[in-house]
């Protein structure tokens, strides 16, 4: 007889037996040992059909093609820049992938990107050895300046962004800050110093309470209480979430703020 030994959403530790019997299938971050399915991470359990899956609560970011990340330029080479990706692996940003304009041979590359600069980039290639190629030639990808960068647990990035970008749009509308969330856990915030701080605190709150229900409401309450920002015109929708359908959520939130004022 097959049976599941843990409840949906419960927290499991490495080596914990999640299910017994051949009727269930080991999903991500689990493995089969004889009749048993065991977890190989500290995570929470989700079931979909017959597959049982462990979702890590922490852990290293694994570079993936098409991910948008925030990185830091750490070196300049003949052909481009080496970028720290907040992982064990440096990435390569080639000259041709960094700028649309023609770069002359022998031109001082530090005029385009200097060591220490932070960039929003996209992963275009990741080899089995985690050699990473980057591009900066898509809308929204660029060098960032000013504001502040914070680091969060990358496993919480989807919560910070929210369903169809709802969470991030809420924060943007309530604080007037520009926010870019990198899949590698680095977040860039730019606005007034006071609102940047409120935004940082809100994001840390999401990170801390990522598994709670009614998170959007809690963050809304937190922002209403702490933010002094009064939106005059609808804020620009330069978001870097994976899904572009945020206009609806944003209009909704703007109206909400207005009625509160």
């Amino acid at each position: 007889m097959s049976k599941i030994l843990v409840k949906e959403k419960s927290i499991v530790t490495p080596g914990e037996v999640l299910a017994e019997g051949m009727d269930y299938l080991p999903g991500q971050h689990t493995y089969r040992q004889g009749e048993k399915i065991l977890s190989e991470v500290l995570g929470f359990v989700t079931l979909s059909g017959r597959a049982i899956k462990a979702n890590p609560l922490s852990g290293p970011y694994r570079p993936k093609v098409r991910d948008k990340i925030i990185g830091k330029v750490v070196d300049i080479t003949f052909s481009g820049w080496r970028v720290n990706t907040n992982t064990a692996y440096l990435a390569m940003l080639n000259i041709k992938d960094a700028s649309t304009r023609f770069v002359r041979k022998g031109e001082d590359l530090s005029k385009i990107l200097a060591i220490g600069d932070f960039v929003v980039v996209k992963l275009t290639n990741v080899t089995s050895q985690n050699l990473i190629d980057l591009t900066m030639k898509e809308p929204g990808l660029r060098k960032i300046a000013g504001g502040r960068i914070i680091k969060i647990n990358h496993q919480k990035v989807p919560r910070v962004i929210g369903r169809e970008g709802s969470m991030i749009t809420l924060i943007k509308n309530k604080t007037g800050c520009e926010i870019t969330v990198g899949q590698n856990g680095l977040v860039w915030i730019k606005g007034t110093p006071e609102e940047e701080l409120v935004t940082e605190q809100a994001i840390k709150l999401i990170e801390e309470k990522a598994h709670e229900g009614g998170l959007t409401e809690k963050i809304d309450v937190f922002l209403t209480k702490n933010s002094k920002y009064k939106p005059q015109t609808p804020t620009p929708t330069k978001t870097f979430t994976k899904t572009p359908t945020k206009t609806f959520a944003q209009t909704q939130n703007t109206t909400q703020t207005k009625t509160e004022n």
């Binding site: 530790t13 080596g15 065991l38 190989e40 991470v41 500290l42 890590p56 922490s58 852990g59 290293p60």
Partner: peptide, 11 residues
Amino acid sequence: LADAGIPMKDM
């Protein structure tokens, strides 16, 4: 190690 999210087959 488990807290760091390192993949581990067992404790």
